[in-house]
Design a binder for these strands. Structure first.
Length: 748
DNA sequence: CGGATTTAACTTTTT
DNA sequence: GTTAAATCCG
């Protein structure tokens, strides 16, 4: 009997036992969910609509597999989309079982980073390789383009970064791409791509895409390594399968090649990451890729009211490329969805807050019941201001992420270099930060020396004595820097990352630089550094054997949504993308205007438009009870205020489940204090005046819409980029672009 | 050479 | 309103 045959006879016996022993485990599931859980072997696709309990199914399945001895915890691999989802999954599984030791739950990136570290020697890496984020990648490509004397204006950085990413996600390496070169752009792209791969490898680093493609390379070139993992993971489960790309599919296909027990869960209607290379065909063609796949459909929704589901369906059914299905629910009919038409983005903020307060007052809701969703991060500012003005506490997810702040990235660059001396990109960031007198000329000399002697930049710093062109006084500075890094590099094995980071921040003077400065910005930066130090302490506390490399990896792969605290008593603001997988009693979707949502760039392209529509579907189905949809007649986009048309998605909504409220479309004028500088029929804001004649000079009294009265301290620049610094009553000073700032001049 | 100040360019979504 | 790049000045 082969291993597999033996297993299947065992399975029959075990199944009977399983039904008994796991009654309580499966009791809380409906018929379809139970079947999906019980079908353990072979390929399984669970098409799970929004709110139909797909995470429950995965968690129950893991518990079921372990409880009924199909597999030990360490033989199960579960892949989720975010770290937070992984954590939740882990918690759920733990609640069913006593022992889940060794279970592999994580994101694609974290799981395969772990495998890469274990197997680094097979792919000519060392296990302390660092991970470059999008920012690092951009900088590296920029350096390359400068070195190759390519015009970044002619060939945009974003386009090159994006295309490199797309090629990698399709498993096209630079060698293969060379054969596909057609246009001059391709030629440039090829050059940059090849050089990028060379340098990133020299730096013992990899980017997000490499975390997927390198394991594939590893498995292709080392069959014995592949076999090891194929035999290790008897059961593989993948959540949010609709958002996987070709490379990720390939990886799953590879690693499941021996037992072939793959269970993927997803919803083609919620595929919203096509722009990142996610391939919706992975789910639509699952049966083709995994023959004899069994398919289960979960169509009962436990989250939303009937009206919300009806609305969501009326929109998404306009998409062509989808597996047809319709969610149903035993929940109440619920209230109709409210469509609000407002004057502009400020009015949007006001009217939204009105409704929010109404919900709090009438329905006794707490702030944490609400989420405010928008298409682009830039929309959050006005909404935030409104909330702040009304004293409503809020949490914002996304935007400038903590680990992407300058001061944090500076420390991280130090740590990356200390962890991996070959990381030249990070080294360049810190070589003269804080300023120690190593300027661009000196750096050029060091780079040249490194290139001609074929050594890393850091090594050339160590050999600075041999470089004739550098003056003795500078050599001393460079040597000091070399010794600083070297000291910590050798210390890293002896002391914990926690101690190391604290000592480093002290010695390098990174914190002192900000502490000495009393401006609010510097104070905030100092606080961020302290927060970072606390995070390192936390990490060291939570892990038995904390290493610098593993800490850096965790930091590189963490996202904002992972740190979001849903228990706080605050309104949550986030993009529609971030909201995937979450649910809230009340959902506001803002900026529903043609060109914003759906975005202008998607209007011409049917596939892109369908993805926007799915994004709207995701937004609607986050709501349990109540939905407010808002669109404004006018909105400032980029530079100018432009009239807006309602989103086509609003027209697609079933009229039977919506009510409209347009009472907010009348212009609400800014109340002016004092006499206006010019007298027109209608009240006038400063914006109107500034075009004519700059009236601003130090000493003038102004009234700001948000911050109140203050006095101009300084005026700089001219025309549209004119800036003013205003000192407010509480002593706070703020800088504004006077053309856009919402303040009026007061005459005394 | 380095720091400060000014100007320009930029906003789609993110592991 | 933000950030990076360019320019100017000591």
């Amino acid at each position: 009997m082969t291993d597999i045959e033996k297993r299947s006879t065992e399975t029959i016996i075990e199944l009977r036992i399983a039904v008994k022993t796991s009654l309580n485990l499966l009791d809380s599931l409906n018929k379809a969910q139970q079947e999906a859980v019980r079908t353990t072997d072979g390929a399984v696709l669970v098409l799970a609509g929004a709110g139909s309990g797909k995470t429950r199914v995965i968690a129950h399945k893991i518990a079921y597999l372990i409880k009924n001895k199909y597999a030990y915890p360490w033989e199960i691999l579960a892949v989720t989309f975010t770290n937070k989802a992984a954590e939740e999954m882990k918690n759920r599984v733990t609640s069913f079982l006593k022992d889940d030791n060794g279970l592999w739950i994580g994101t694609f990136h974290s799981i395969f980073a772990r495998i890469l570290r274990l197997e680094a020697k097979h792919i000519k890496f060392t296990s302390d390789f660092v991970i470059y984020d999008t920012d690092d990648k951009k900088k590296l490509i920029k350096n390359i383009m400068q070195d190759l004397v390519l015009d970044t204006n002619q060939y945009s950085l974003e386009a090159i970064c994006g295309t490199v990413s797309k090629l990698k996600n399709k498993l096209i390496g630079h060698e293969e791409f060379q054969k596909l070169v057609k246009t001059p752009f391709d030629q440039v792209l090829f050059q940059v791509f090849a050089e990028y791969q060379k340098r990133i490898k020299q730096s013992n680093a990899c980017d997000f895409d490499d975390l997927i493609t390198l394991p594939i390379e590893l498995f292709r070139n080392n069959p014995q390594v592949l076999k090891k993992y194929q035999k290790k993971f008897k059961y593989i489960l993948v959540d949010e399968y609709q958002d996987t790309n070709y490379a990720q599919y390939k990886l799953i296909h590879f690693i499941s090649g021996f037992y072939k027990n793959v269970c993927v869960v997803g919803d083609d209607d919620q595929s919203i990451y096509g722009w990142r290379g996610a391939d919706i065909r992975n789910i639509l063609e699952f049966e083709k890729n995994f023959p004899e796949a069994k398919i289960f459909r979960l169509e009962q929704n436990y989250r939303s009211t009937k009206n919300i589901l009806k609305a969501a369906h009326s929109v998404v059914r306009n998409n062509k490329g989808r597996k047809s299905k319709e969610l149903w629910s035993e929940n109440d009919q619920g209230e109709k969805l409210m469509v609000l038409n407002v004057y502009d983005e400020y009015d949007e903020s006001d009217r939204m807050i009105e409704k929010l307060k109404g919900e709090v007052f009438k329905n006794k809701r707490s702030f944490s019941d609400f989420v405010i969703l928008y298409r682009t991060n830039a929309q959050s500012r006005v909404l935030e201001e409104g909330l702040r003005r009304n004293g409503i506490s809020y949490i914002i997810v996304g935007g400038v992420k903590f680990y992407e702040r300058k001061e944090i990235k500076d420390i991280l660059a130090y740590l990356k270099v200390i962890s991996n001396l070959k990381d030249s990109l990070s080294l360049l960031r810190i070589i003269n930060y804080p300023n120690r007198g190593i300027g661009s000329k000196t750096i050029e000399k060091l780079k040249k020396w490194a290139a001609t002697h074929n050594i890393s930049l850091f090594e050339s710093i160590g050999k600075v004595d041999q470089i004739g062109e550098i003056s003795d006084s500078r050599k001393k500075i460079i040597k000091d820097f070399y010794q600083l890094i070297n000291k910590y590099s050798s210390l890293k094995k002896e002391i914990s990352p926690n101690e190391l980071t604290h000592a480093l921040v002290d010695e390098s003077g990174l914190l002192l630089k900000y502490k000495g400065d009393s401006t609010p910005e510097s104070q905030e930066r100092a606080n961020n550094i302290k927060e970072f130090l606390a995070a390192v302490s936390d990490y060291a506390f939570q892990h038995e054997n904390p290493t610098l490399a593993s800490f850096l990896e965790e930091v590189s792969l963490i996202t904002d949504i992972d740190t979001w605290d849903r228990t706080a008593n605050a309104v949550t603001l986030m993009t529609l993308h971030s909201a995937k997988g979450l649910e809230f009693p009340v959902v506001f979707i803002t900026g529903l205007e043609q060109g914003l949502f759906p975005l202008a760039s998607s209007l011409e392209d049917q596939n892109k438009l369908e993805e926007e529509r799915r994004l709207f579907y995701v937004g609607l189905t986050r709501a349990k009870e109540r939905v407010y949809l808002i669109w404004a007649d006018n909105r400032r986009r980029f530079r100018d205020v432009e009239p807006q048309e309602p989103s086509i998605f609003l027209n697609e909504l079933d009229p039977a489940v919506i009510i409209t409220d347009s009472s907010g479309t009348k212009k609400r004028y800014v109340q002016k204090a004092g006499k206006p500088a010019y007298s027109f029929d209608s009240p006038l804001t400063y914006e109107d005046v500034s075009q004519e004649e700059p009236l601003l000079k130090p000493g003038i009294l102004v009234e700001h819409e948000v911050y109140g009265r203050g006095r101009i301290v300084k005026v700089s620049g001219k025309g549209k980029s004119q800036k003013v610094i205003i000192s407010f009553k509480n002593g706070e000073q703020k800088k504004f672009l006077s053309n856009y700032a919402r303040f009026t001049i007061l005459t005394e």
